[in-house]
Computed example of a mutant assay.
Amino acid sequence: MPSVVLITGVSRHLGGVFARLLCEQESIERIIGVDVVAPPHPVGRTEFVRADIRSPMIGKVIASAAVDTVVHMSVIATPLHAGGRATQKEINVIGSMQLLAACQKAPSVQHLVVKSTAGVYGSSNRDPALFQEDMAAKKLPSTGFGKDSVEVEGYVRGLARRRPDIGITMIRFANVIGPRVRTAMTDYFSLPVIPMPLGFDARLQFIHEDDVGAAMVAATMEAPAGIVNVAGDGIITMTQAVALAGRPVLAVPPGTRGPLNFALRRSGLIDFSPDQLDLFVYGRGLDTHAMRALLRFEPQYTTREAFEDFVAAGIRPLDRAADLTYAAGARVEQILQRAERLLPGSKDPASIGRSS
């Protein structure tokens, strides 16, 4: 059972939801949350430490608190939320490398839980009906969040080889949706007009935002389970999703994903990678037997119910205020780290603004 848990990405919505749920586990003695900006939401009894996982100083946080369980929730799915693709990749890839290096050096760490994505399976016309955890992508993601997640999972496997005593649980979530979370999917179905590939009706699977937090708690409290798919039961087609959203449709040829992605990015409304747009052409399905057998987790919402809950709350305008705050914090930490490298005597960036 975990005793001291460290959570990355605690200032983002899903990280905060997970932190609050984990605080209900009375057997856990201490919970530490780290991020580049202070949480804008309650995090229960979680102790907040302002720290950037891209900095080697994250190792000092883990070592000083004798952390035994690390929960990595700081892989960002949308570049607009992080301040651009370059910053997104730095946080996702460089940040994960530093965090895993810190875990490798810390003898106290016994369990690593990673929030990953079903996007590592890619999406193509050669895919199976349902991806099982031991299956590989028929077409690997080449850009964006999916590519970052493939790299992160590779680093996690490397850690498992170097430190076989650390138990690994890696959760590959279906696309997250809900009334309060901001994801690529909520942005897409909030567009004034929804582009839909002409001649295709992809199968989609979703996981409700509330179920993400509950699944991460199960992964943290249960024994290490390896790689586990997590998704709501059933599927929903693109046609059904668009009808439920009540938005007009713009039919686009599937071969125009590049220009479409460029136009959406230039509009400032949404930033999908071409690989994410492939999902709307070919769809994707997940086998979830391991979710029940290993995590003993049962989602509260089916795929359709999760989407209906998102729609019932009212599709929101695309508010960038929270994104700008987080992106500014990430940028400041990046500048401080560069200053530290140039001026070795300057103040430790991981300690600036630290609070609890």
Rank of each mutant, 00 (worst) to 15 (best):
R247C: 01
S273N: 10
G285K: 05
V249C: 11
P274D: 12
A313L: 04
R266T: 14
G314D: 10
S267N: 09
T302M: 04
L324M: 14
D278N: 10
A263K: 02
G258A: 07
G268F: 10
L260H: 01
Q300I: 08
A322H: 14
L294S: 12
R257A: 08
E308S: 09
F307R: 09
P253R: 13
D287S: 14
L279V: 12
Q276C: 04
P253V: 05
F297M: 12
T303R: 06
L260V: 00
L277M: 13
D323Q: 13
L294N: 02
P259G: 00
V252S: 09
R292K: 15
D271E: 15
N261M: 13
P259W: 06
R265A: 15
R304V: 15
A293G: 09
R296I: 04
R284A: 05
D309C: 08
G255H: 02
I315D: 02
Y301M: 10
R265G: 15
Q300S: 11
L318A: 12
R257E: 03
A263N: 00
I315V: 06
A306G: 01
G246A: 11
R320A: 14
D319I: 09
V281L: 00
V281T: 13
T256F: 08
L250F: 11
T256P: 01
D275E: 03
V249D: 09
G255K: 00
T303C: 13
L260R: 00
H289Q: 15
T288Y: 05
R266V: 14
R257Q: 06
F280Q: 07
L250P: 03
D319H: 12
